[in-house]
Design a protein around this nucleic acid. Structure first.
Lengths: 147, 147
DNA sequence: CAGTATCCCTCAAGATACTG
DNA sequence: CAGTATCTTGAGGGATACTG
């Protein structure tokens, strides 16, 4: 394990969150986890990142309680990484960043990957409320559609 | 300028947002901007970061349209960095990360800095709705209270 | 396939001196 | 005070070989 969190005592919750998930890869791993990706090789191929770095980040996310390891669902001897409740509660962060990116980092006619509501089949656009208590979206309701 | 965004074509809005604001300092600069910090020296002291890095990040955020430079409000010859509309719309991201951090990265009895609603004077807790359309909070209504 | 161990290298970040 | 320029360092990240 590298990346020694060199933020010793940090009173700001934003800063603590950023120190955990505000690096180049961790948030994208969480995003992929929301997309249903569970296995080491799938994360690695989808993100195109080095295996040692992926291993490091997965360990950190497990230690932080964002992911947990489970026995593989297909009967093989390996592990799968799935979101914990703590990890699922990162959903508003992911969607907020999605919405901001859609609105401000894409040209009007530029296509981007979609977040699909599994129940209705409709895309979750930047108009969709996110963190409203009791609102429309909850973690696990959506998946990313590749385009 | 360093930090060459080495993400050439990125179809995922989350990834694009992360490439801009998902580094060690940028998001904290934006957080400070929401807190009303405007001047180079104030950012530098508050964040305790190197001046050259701060200069680089401020430039990038200006180029990205998140911040804009204005003549100093106190009559000095210097500039101030203030959030644009695009920057203010990062508010849900900041608050989502705040709420997650408050809930999951602090011990039950551990204190953290507060986000204060300027109009009511009440702290914005993790129970407060964030991105609900027409909801309670909008950018500019809040400030961080040091504890 | 799922990792771990090594090697290497770039670049982000820090420190500091300098300028208008 | 508000930056810029320069130098150095260390860690983050990539490539790849290796193991169960």
């Amino acid at each position: 394990m590298s990346t020694p969190q060199s933020l010793p005592y940090e009173p700001c919750p934003v800063a603590r969150s950023a120190s955990l998930v505000g690096d180049r890869w961790s948030l994208l791993i969480v995003r992929d986890a929301f997309d249903g990706i569970r296995r080491f090789g799938d994360f690695q191929r989808n993100l195109g990142m080095a295996r040692n770095i992926l291993s490091d980040r997965l360990q950190k996310l497990v230690i932080a309680g964002v992911l947990e390891m489970q026995a593989a669902s297909d009967g093989t001897a390996y592990q799968e990484y799935v979101l914990t409740a703590k990890g699922e509660s990162l959903f508003p962060v992911i969607v907020a960043m999605r919405q901001w990116g859609e609105l401000h980092l894409f040209l009007p006619d530029e296509r981007h990957s979609e977040l699909i509501d599994k129940q209705t089949g409709n895309p979750v656009s930047y108009m969709t409320p996110v963190t409203e208590t009791g609102g429309v979206l909850t973690a696990g309701m959506t998946q990313v559609q590749k385009i």
